[in-house]
């Protein structure tokens, strides 16, 4: 009975896969327009090779431990291999976003991503925010200077996106990680984004109920240089 209780306690203490131990928030300013920088992206093939290499090494170590015959490649379970390949394909697919527009305040962030849903987070005063909907559990917030969005899906899947800003503030790295209960370890793919200035398109659009999206010609001239005596834009950092 006592042993069962101890075992229960130990199981209770175990952290769930992908659980974030959020460090103290050091809020970085991600706001602006960002486009994918292909030159800095991870290669899916290279990541897969590395993943399978680690798996084989791990399996070999286990086989050596059990005094198996050495020098022979230990086969990877075909089902696991298929899951790893699927994870790679899936992560590659969901991280294809080419352009992002980020609006950020001290309490909220909204990441509008081209072609898919936006990522929103209302930062709690401490820890991470968790919301539930019928299809997933969403967790988001600051982990040190990184912004984390985590999605806990059915069928043992977890997708996590971790945003980090470069020291110069002109690059964002988005590390998309997938965890499956059918794969031995997570699969991560890094995508890099560079800041760009959204050019004035010469028209502005507004959503309406009755007419849908209505666009009007904008009166502002395109790319007007700033006046020489105009004050420099100030970056407000709440911290």
């Amino acid at each position: 009975m006592f042993l069962l209780a101890i075992a229960g306690l130990l199981t209770g203490c175990q952290s769930q896969p992908g659980e974030i131990k959020a460090r103290k928030a050091l809020r970085a300013d991600f706001s602006g327009n960002w486009e994918m920088d292909y030159s800095l992206n991870d290669s899916v093939e290279a990541k897969l090779d590395a993943y399978f290499y680690r798996m084989r090494r791990s399996l070999s170590r286990q086989a050596d431990g059990r005094q198996f015959e050495t020098g022979r490649a230990v086969p990877i379970n075909p089902g696991t291999a298929q899951t790893v390949l699927a994870m790679a394909q899936f992560v590659e697919k969901i991280s294809r976003v080419q352009v992002m527009e980020i609006e950020q305040t001290y309490t909220d962030i909204r990441v509008d991503r081209e072609g898919t849903f936006s990522l929103n987070c209302h930062f709690p005063t401490q820890g991470l925010e968790q919301t539930n909907n019928p299809f997933a559990t969403e967790v988001c917030g600051w982990d040190g200077h990184q912004l984390v969005f985590q999605l806990r899906l059915p069928e043992g899947l977890l997708v996590q996106q971790r945003f980090s800003l470069s020291s110069g503030g002109d690059q964002i790295n988005v590390a998309t990680t997938m965890i499956s209960d059918r794969a031995p370890e997570p699969f991560t793919l890094n995508r890099s984004y560079s800041r760009f200035d959204k050019r004035n398109r010469g028209f502005t659009c507004e959503q309406t109920v009755q007419k849908g999206k209505v666009c009007t010609l904008s009166s502002e001239p395109e790319d007007l240089p700033p006046a020489p005596d105009a004050p420099k834009p100030m970056i407000m950092n709440a911290d």
Partner: peptide
Amino acid sequence: RGSLASMN
């Protein structure tokens, strides 16, 4: 479970 179709 764990297949690409299931993830999608």
